[in-house]
Amino acid sequence: MKKTTLKDIANHFDVSISTVSKALNDSPEISKTTSEEIKAYAKQINYTPNFNALSLKNQRTKTIGVIIPNMLNYYFAQVLKGIEKTATKKGYKIITCISNDSLQKEIETIEMLSSGVVDGFILSVAEETEAKKEYNHFKSSIAKEIPLVMFDRVVEDIDCDKVITNDFMASVNAVNYLKNKGCKKIAFAAANMDLSVGKLRCDGYLAGLKNNNLDKDDSIIITTHEMYYKKHEAIVKPLFDQSFDAIIASNESVAIAALRVAKDKGIKIPEDLSVIAFSNGILARHSNPRLSTVSQHGEIIGEKSVTLLINKLENKIKTTTSETVETDIVIRDSSK
């Protein structure tokens, strides 16, 4: 069966191909009534645009590639929600891919989508990429004039737009909060130390201790490179051989593992132990007790990321910028 083209739709309405194209893309040059009629007819005859042809004609696909490390993390789902909502408003589509924290998967995805499929990328860097410090695929994309916007997990050495949260200050603020609530011995547990965000959170924790004249105790600091959820309980268990009255966890899974171990040992939350976790996801709201968290505002990060990329694409901006989204602490039942 012959594929329906823009020309077929144009002939049906006795208008130019350009008019049809503008109507399908919600151009303000075309009246709302005409646009709706053309779109309804296109849907009726199952018209699908030829994105490769569009790309060849005007060097733009109005499609953005989004690469996230995993779909299990509520934070990334929120970022994706912000990206999709804002992209749709601005007339762009997104193609979402999962790197599964694999360097090779990230490379393959960028290579595949760089061949005229997308105009640019929004991504959070895979854990393996950060661990191996292999960034040639990012440099190659930029060299091809396919811009990148990195969010959350970013690479300082890559000259691209970035949207971040101040993970360092978020940890400092968490220590300040716990100290103000009377906590004197604050533990720290991180399971993602290959990531820039893990290091920043740990550095912020140490700075927070120093600012509050609290002693650093290595026996209640656990930093690993382990990302597997099933092992988090084994990671935090050795902490409980020591005494402490608060813990800051690098993610919700680590925090929930700490809650389980505490319960097994008869430690009352939050009377005997306060727990604060990064970041503010579904697990935090439904754990027992509900977790106090550092909220990173993923949806806002998504909105800012896609806005930066579209501005760069449409206004041909050559300079790069970095934007910071402030965090705040959401108090629930796991802390005083």
Rank of each mutant, 00 (worst) to 15 (best):
D8G: 11
L103N: 03
T33L: 12
L195Q: 12
M193C: 02
N213D: 08
Y228N: 13
I301Q: 00
K105D: 03
K263E: 14
K2M: 14
A190Y: 02
I269W: 09
F240N: 02
L291E: 09
N100V: 05
E156P: 04
R285I: 12
N315H: 04
N173W: 04
R60N: 01
K210Y: 05
L214I: 12
T293A: 05
M227A: 10
Y229R: 13
R60Y: 00
D217G: 04
Y74G: 09
D194G: 11
R60H: 01
V66S: 02
E156F: 13
S31H: 05
D264I: 15
L214H: 08
A234W: 09
L283N: 13
N173A: 12
K90E: 14
N212S: 06
C97S: 15
E111L: 05
L80Y: 08
A23Y: 10
E37P: 03
G266H: 15
D264Q: 15
D203A: 14
G298V: 13
S295M: 14
F240K: 11
S16I: 12
S292F: 14
N46V: 12
V155G: 07
F121K: 09
L259R: 03
V275P: 05
S114Q: 03
F151I: 02
F188M: 03
D241F: 07
S335P: 08
K139W: 05
G91T: 04
K93S: 15
V306F: 03
V175K: 06
D101L: 13
S305H: 03
V79E: 04
L200N: 10
D245R: 08
D167H: 14
I110N: 00
